[in-house]
């Protein structure tokens, strides 16, 4: 283990990121705190498996965090609704690192404003398309069409990059 990867450093560097992400997925503050501590225990136990040639430390910790949230939902399904925005989870071919987010940002900038807004409101703010149409004050039918147009354009813009 490199010196950089000691447990105190990891905790200081990632505690806020892990907690705020977990908190965004769990309504209960105490559950989020408990889960956050469990995640760091997992990180310390598995740090020897981290391979910086395969992924960045941030991506590795993110994957542990996300998988821990899924496990939490599976074991607490009586108290929590199963989250539905992890349906990408089994698919692994999208790179996750700082560069991929920069590539996405540049591609979004090339879209017309209305298409960019639809993508942000739907995929980041997690509004359904009906809610997006209300927020943008345009008809649901138009939002559906423009959503497809935005996906098509993004696919071309991101081709061979992500």
């Amino acid at each position: 283990m490199s010196e950089r990867l000691d447990s105190e450093w990891i905790y200081t560097e990632y505690r806020d990121k892990v907690f705020s992400y977990v908190r965004s997925k769990l309504n209960n503050y105490h559950d989020a705190e408990d889960l956050c501590e469990d995640i760091f225990i997992k990180i310390y136990k598995n740090i020897d498996r981290f391979d910086e040639e395969k992924s960045s430390l941030s991506t590795w910790i993110f994957n542990i965090t996300r998988n821990s949230i899924i496990d939490f939902y599976r074991t607490n399904k009586t108290n929590y609704e199963i989250i539905d925005n992890y349906d990408y989870i089994e698919e692994e071919d999208a790179e996750l690192d700082a560069l991929s987010l920069e590539i996405l940002a540049k591609a979004l900038e090339q879209l017309p404003e209305i298409l960019r807004d639809i993508i942000v409101l739907h995929y980041y703010e997690e509004n359904n398309l009906k809610e997006v149409s209300e927020k943008l004050n345009i008809s649901y039918g138009i939002v559906k069409l423009r959503h497809k147009e935005a996906l098509f354009k993004l696919k071309n813009l991101l081709k061979d990059q992500l």
Binding site: K17, V18, Y21, S24, S58, T59, F62, T65, R66, N85, D87, Y88, E91, E92, D93, A94, L96, A98, S100, L101, E102, L104, A105, K106, L108, I119, Y123, Y124, L151, L154, K155, L158, L162
Partner: peptide, 22 residues
């Protein structure tokens, strides 16, 4: 991975590790 899932995954990662530009 289809574009929708790719966007979900990228925006989800952004929640964890903020990119200033995005």
């Amino acid at each position: 991975m289809n574009m929708e899932n790719k966007l979900k995954k990228l925006f989800d990662y952004h929640r964890f590790s903020k990119n200033e530009h995005l």
